[in-house]
Amino acid sequence: MTNVYMPIKAEIVSIIPQTDIDYTFRLKSDILPQHGQFLQVSIPKIGEAPISISDYTDEYIELTIRKVGTVTDAIHELKPGDFLFIRGPYGHGFPVEDFKNKNVVIAAGGTGLAPVKSIINRYNRNPKEIKKLNILVGFKSPKDILFEDEIKKWKEKFDVLLTVDNGDETWKGNTGLITKFIPDLKIENSDDTIVIVVGPPMMMKFACLEFLKRGILEENIWVSFERKMSCGIGKCGHCKINETYVCLEGPVFNYTKSKQLLD
């Protein structure tokens, strides 16, 4: 019998600190996930946690992990050459095939940028896949900014709006919540624009409402949920919202579905 809980060993190739508490771990792996899928990542004797895949190639995957609990604290102690244990990928990602030749807007708040970063890099490598890409990223403060180098690179090809909730004396960029910038966003053909919104629950809720006001169709809005998960495969029950298992049907949901996920 196959043991569905058996993880595989994956070597850490490099570790790139993004902020004081967010590190990107590049693991040797040939897993080819969908954008937005997640892995169950563990350290034996410490524990397992669901982590979204922030980027991948056929040689490695990247996980951007915030230090917020027992497991992630321990992961942050690891060095290149150490191993993480992974199983997955699990869940449903973003249906990027359906986004082809369309305008795409990606709005990400904080660590919400991680699960959509691979999509942005996909378009960065192949900008012709879509008509236009708008990126809207927000962080709490300048020191919380993730993927700064990549954001700079994206700016060369796409419309990127970077904002922080609260700036500091050196900050010269935008300040304010993402939702503040949605009304003035340049959107052509709003009924043919795909919007991806990922971030904290409140940010997603209000950003979606702003996009709807801009005439984006419900079925063109995609979100990704973060829930407690112990198994990742529809057994443990933690991530269930009514009849929906976030680990199975999500974590990526179409807005027409996500708006019905009452809690």
């Binding site: 809980y5 563990s42 350290i43 034996p44 004797k45 410490i46 524990g47 397992e48 112990s230 198994c231 057994k235 443990c236 029950g237 933690h238």
Partner: peptide, 24 residues
Amino acid sequence: SCFSMQDIFYKDNPKCGERRRVWA
């Protein structure tokens, strides 16, 4: 049927331990 996962190491031998699931 809900459960949580727990990883532990043995107090007397921290190099060894187990992963278990427990009703939640």
